[in-house]
Nucleic acid binder design. Structure first.
Lengths: 210, 210, 210, 210
DNA sequence: GATGAATGAGTTTTCATTCAT
DNA sequence: GATGAATGAAAACTCATTCAT
């Protein structure tokens, strides 16, 4: 949240910065969805944001800053939604299913945003990349934690490394729902997709930790 | 192969077309790896290919043609390697493991190429996209087939839709090894990665098809 | 002094105008020294002056006004210093030496300012140029007067035109000390420079007026 | 001459480079004369040169390269003219007069060019400045040499440092004729100016070396 | 078939100036 | 009187593409 201040602005009023950047991000995302980062011009972003090109540059330094702001914001949104959905005391099979379902649902809702983000991440300036990758790992950590507690409660002994891999798998399967919609949508509803992926996982891990 | 003729050239000599395009693709891939499609100029590609910008345009119509050629060629390479690795009569658990291992190995070897391809696919001209997505499905089909035969041999009844999902999972896990190397490489060797993913899958599906 | 009122201000309080403009000129000179007039932005000038861009524009109309104010101020400073240094009743060879030395010393002290002024004068709006050139001639006149009195006292007959040329020479040699410091500093101290230039001049003119 | 290759061009044909750069320099000088370097746009230069903005940038990298090319070319022109005018075996008072007269004449002819050059030199990129200042010193050296031979032939003993100063004076007086034309033209013809400056110098130095 | 010079529309970014608060 | 957010014209520079040789 306050990390957005990573990108300097020549405007002083922080309240205003927040407002304008929100407009900017909103405008940018819808353009990036349509034509990608490189084919979107800063002028278009300014226009879509509802202000002039001059004003746009009062709130960022370079076009790449916009991309960073966009990625940052999408991560925050996803994370916030996930964290709101997942706080279980006791972790059972059912809990895991709910967790995965919640996450997949979010990825379904934010499909376009997520698509944009992962396709343009490579265009981020080198120095901003680590910040973004860190956020990705934080999301993995959410499921690592969930799985770890599941195994602990079951009394199974599974290595951290293995758990991490399963968590990565979950995260990637969520993204996959967005990225491969051209193929998956024809055959699965989100519910079916969720159910089958969950079963595959739970059967797999229960077998392993036996 | 002959599909490459999708991209017209003003040169007649097909032998020459093939040679020049190979040079082009090779040069382009190494540039795309480094700086991505959009940040690579046609001049750079011409130079890296060993001929002039004028000559480059004798063999393609637009810059995007190069991207198509590149994607097409990478797919062909991956497919060819996979098909060479997988032709089993009898499909057992072991066979599946070998299949996955072969595929992951190929994805590991062609890591950069695959990264490039999936990140730039969205820049393909609309009309070329289906061709490329079709190739993606062909790759999925390879594992669909493998799994189908595995279940048949086991006498399990599993729906095509479910099998297709598992196949997608395998394909995505191969790509994931390339895309998330920044995170995975720290914790897993390709062998460990392969083994764990295989176990998760086989345990999962054996359980399901019981 | 009152000529500065050439530049209109929307502020009424003349005392305030003076204060603000002094701050402005000081800030501007140091920036112009560093990066020249064109590469300095009005925002930077406002900041260096200690007030906002809005306030800056309460005291000037255009960026060029600042340049005028700067030039004007430097001339005033040089002139004032010269006039303070030169008021001789009786003009002898020695007096001339003192005059030249005083002038060169001032040019040495105000080196950066003078450099700035002469390099940016051409950027003054056409209508302000005459005012500034007039000041330049006033400085020439100081030495014309000195030389005229020297010749009169010696009883030599030398034309006004010739005297004017010598005066121009002196003025230019002072500027030259600033402009060519990159070359002169390596070989001469200000004292040596002054002495040799003075000797060359005095020997030259004494010979001529014989 | 070959030093112009200091500025890289993406065009290979050196003959063409020379032609285009000549056009460019010619166009640029006339624009710089009129409005200075900063107020002249690259598009204007391209247009004045008779080709498109794209073509302009095939022959230079940045706008500042043009300034360098312009300065370089003016120096070369001045130097070449001077060297053609001055090659005396025996150096007498008369020779010196001829030398000065020739130099002043050149400065009179190339007045605008010289004005442009000295006013914009400060805008040269840092790394190009030394090249240009070196050329300035070469011009000083021409007169150092002349004066040295004059004194030697007369048998006078005068230090190198003193001679260098006189040479600088000559160079500066030539420039002064261009820079202060607004004041000097009213009172002197080039001939009168030359004659009086020569007399002042020769009387001065003859007196000194006595 | 190969070359590379020419083109100019299009891109990012800057900055003097205004004006509502 | 002071502030600083907003503006948009203008600037430097790029690059895919063409076409005469």
């Amino acid at each position: 949240m306050s990390e957005k201040q990573t990108v300097p602005s020549s405007v002083k009023d922080t309240r205003l910065i927040q407002i304008r950047r929100e407009q900017m991000i909103k405008g940018a995302i819808s353009l990036f969805k349509e034509k990608g980062f490189h084919r979107t011009t800063t002028r278009e972003i300014a226009k879509a944001s509802g202000f002039s090109i001059g004003t746009l540059y009062e709130y960022i330094r370079t076009k790449e800053d916009i991309l960073y702001l966009v990625c940052d914001q999408i991560y925050d949104e996803v994370q916030e939604k996930i964290k709101r959905a997942l706080h279980f005391r006791h972790v059972t099979k059912e809990t895991i299913k709910e967790g995965i379902a919640a996450y997949f649902k979010i990825m379904d809702e934010l499909q376009d945003e997520v698509l944009v983000m992962y396709q343009e991440i490579k265009s981020l300036p080198r120095e901003m990349l680590p910040v973004v990758l860190k956020k990705e790992l934080e999301m993995v950590a959410v499921f690592e934690d969930l799985l770890r507690r599941y195994f602990d409660q079951k009394g199974s002994v599974v290595s951290d490394e293995q758990i991490r891999l399963y968590a990565h798998n979950i995260i990637v399967q969520g993204q996959m729902w967005g990225f491969r919609r051209w193929a998956l949508r024809k055959h699965y509803t989100l519910e079916k997709y969720t159910e089958w992926q969950f079963h595959l996982l739970i059967n797999g891990i229960d077998q392993i930790s036996k």
